[in-house]
Design a protein around this nucleic acid. Structure first.
Lengths: 149, 149
DNA sequence: GGTGTCGTAACGTTTACGGTTACGACAAGC
DNA sequence: GCTTGTCGTAACCGTAAACGTTACGACACC
């Protein structure tokens, strides 16, 4: 009966990591800023999609942009100081699992108690997930990327 | 360019655990089978949704059904022998994170190497997730449910 | 044979994201 | 100051998945 987010980041984390890593490498090669056009070409998508995504990352303090001519994007921190958890939180990814869409029968023992019981499991999993994401920085990702060449 | 599952089980795991736990408790109280109608009432959804879900669980060998008059659903194994991982696999939940929807520019260093780099992280996370889900059985869930009363 | 339930197809609704177009805002350079 | 290039955002469409509902055939007990 009620509405529900049902998000699921899915490919957004991949694209966000891709964009930031691209900017980082581009800057290390001596460029000031990267345009959404350039990033979109590497990601193989539309520049607007990149701008929307980077706007979220800017809100989280991971990236920043300059306007006007010679405009573009730059990192706010070094790649080594950005973990995948930072990126994950920046793109406001929803929880992996959700409870019922419409609340189950509260008169039923199972219907009444299953929500909290499952939530406890989900919270534990979510916490573990965050720990895993925090272990990897974009510097690690870039190292893997360059190693694969 | 290509199509993609983009599944994300979301509430399906919750509902599946709910249904199985309900059947288990109902059987312990002396009943032979549970109808999709009864389960749907507890879950607060449509019986067809329950039947579709239980059909997946039957394929995985977790539940079984009887037809004809006095028909309904029963467990194939005891609640203690069913983990959340079993349920998760039974409902064919997709991966948490996905790679790019359309393949990135292979001419670009980042575009070429980012996929495998992220996949390695995702595989590790997926593996940890499975370990977490395997730790909890439906018997554990039922215990929590009854404790909450 | 009647009855109750499963089995399943078909269809509509909802939600979210990605893709695209469009246009205003802005700042550097001439 | 005007031009130019890029960001900032709104608006809209298409797609994909799950849920909800209706409908009807299949089946087995009584």
């Amino acid at each position: 009966m009620e509405a529900r987010p049902e998000v699921s980041a899915n490919s957004r984390l991949t694209v966000a990591a891709h964009a930031l890593t691209w900017i980082g490498l581009y800057q290390r090669r001596g460029h000031e800023v990267a345009t959404s056009e350039q990033i979109a070409t590497s990601v193989n998508t539309n520049p607007v999609v990149i701008r929307r995504l980077l706007a979220d990352l800017r809100k989280a303090g991971l990236a920043d942009s300059r306007r006007g001519a010679g405009a573009g994007w730059m990192l706010s921190r070094d790649l080594a100081a950005i973990t995948l958890l930072d990126v994950h939180d920046a793109i406001a990814a929803g929880p992996i699992f959700a409870l019922h869409r419409s609340t189950p029968d509260p008169e039923c023992v199972v219907g009444h108690g299953i929500g909290p019981a499952m939530a406890a499991v989900y919270d534990q999993i979510e916490s573990t997930l965050r720990g895993e994401l925090a272990r990897t920085t974009l510097e690690d990702i870039l190292r893997d990327v360059l190693k694969a060449t």
